[in-house]
Each structure stands twice: as structure tokens, then as C-alpha cells.
Design a protein around this nucleic acid. Sequence first.
DNA 1: GACATGACAAGGC
DNA 2: AGCCTTGCCATGT
Length: 130
Amino acid sequence: MWYSVVYKAIQQIPYGKVTSYGHIANLVGYPERPRQVGLCLKHLPDSSDQPDSRYNGDNVPWQRVINSKGVISNRGAGGAARQETALEAEGVEVGRGALGERTVDFGTYGWFPDRLPSDSDDEDEDEDEE
DNA sequence: GACATGACAAGGC
DNA sequence: AGCCTTGCCATGT
């Protein structure tokens, strides 16, 4: 499924690095669909909610995915704060915008490869793609 | 099954 | 340079 590809792409993000939704969309082959990338994270099951799911908030570093402005989206549930904590735990310096938004310096922690490092090679995982 | 929504991004004004 | 509109496709009601 499309989501699975996105999750895999996100899992390619190295520790202590962050990238944008748009770039993820680019890596998965759908540069015109950054929204769906965000949806993936939104629909991302919690490790405690869907422990049987291959992809959940426990094995997918959704925290390393922020918007193109380098700002952590404010989903209104204080989730941004949780994301900030997760990022700082990885050594990522999370700053504060004028409005109090959590910002990350792409110039320092930005991760923008031309393509998925592991996608170019053979992935012998039990994926259920096309 | 159809309509509305959604953690975004880019173009236009 | 900033704000508003459009594009997108899977998930949910």
C-alpha cells in the first residue's frame, strides 16, 4: 500500500536528522502528494493501540518528519510538544518561533537525499506492495 | 458507496 | 514577502 511505502521511507531517516513531508513524498515517488504523507503519520497506529501493525508510532520515526518550513506542525493536541521531546532526545536542537512554534534548523539537521538509500538496493523484507 | 477531511506544498495575487 | 487557493488520495462516517 501507499502508506507502507511512506512508512518505509520515513524509517530511512537517520537518527538525529529531520526531513520535510514534501521530501518524503518525493522519495516515495509521489512529489505531488505531501498531504498524504502527513495523513500516513496521522493514521499511524500507536504501538499500544495497534501492536500487531507492522508500522506504528514505535517503529516509525514520525518525529523526524516536519513541514517544509522547518516547523513542527501544531496538531492542537500537544502532540507537537511530544515530537519536540522526541527530537531533542535524538540530539536535534528544537528552537522556538516568534509564535512559539517548535522549529528545526534544516541546515543543521536537514536530511534531503536524492532517493531512498535502501530503496535503490534489494529489500528482502516481507512487504506487500504491488 | 459517496462525501468530507486531513501532521502539507507550491503558485498566484 | 505574506496570505489565499488548488491539488491529492486513503481513511472515516
